[in-house]
């Protein structure tokens, strides 16, 4: 079992990303949320549109998408490399995998922190604009 201890700690580091993903999902549920904007002309069905609009909101949404892309593209080879190492010991060295995990996890955490902060800013600004009387 001792041989796998290093890999387990690498997996634990990567698991931090799962927490980041929860934050990211929470923020994106709000960022991609729709609000009712009235009804269609001619008395049709209700109209829905994105809650947050403008370049700032668009940038934040693109960041969420970018982080999603990065998570998939960075963790797929990394976790695959860990698995491969179980069947072909020594294929990838543990220090190199650890270094890769630190870089990938750090970038993810940094990016998620920024997205959460920007999402909070957007919510703050909207709350201030709408006041207690939503339009």
């Amino acid at each position: 079992m001792d041989a796998y201890r290093d890999y387990v700690s690498l997996l634990q580091i990567s698991a931090v990303t799962l927490v980041a993903c929860v934050f990211l999902l929470g923020a994106s549920a709000d960022l991609f949320g729709l609000d009712q904007m009235g009804v269609e002309p001619g008395g049709g069905r209700p109209l829905y549109a994105l809650r947050y609009r403008g370049w700032f909101a668009n940038t934040t949404r693109h960041m969420v998408f970018g982080i999603g892309l990065f998570l998939v593209s960075a963790y797929s080879p990394f976790i695959s490399a860990l698995l491969l190492n179980l069947f072909f010991p020594g294929l990838f060295s543990v220090p190199l995998l650890a270094g890769f995990a630190i870089v990938v996890t750090s970038i993810t955490i940094l990016a998620v922190c920024w997205v959460v902060f920007l999402a909070v800013c957007l919510r703050w600004v909207k709350m201030r604009q709408d006041g207690p009387f939503p339009r």
Binding site: S73, S76, P77, S80, A81, L91, F92, S93, L97, F100
Partner: peptide
């Protein structure tokens, strides 16, 4: 595999998947 090659494989695979998804 040498360390350089390992790094190249890992970062290359990351870049490749990222590029394909973006494309």
């Amino acid at each position: 595999m040498s360390d350089t090659l390992q790094l190249f494989v890992l970062s290359g695979a990351t870049a490749l998947i990222f590029g394909c998804l973006l494309l």
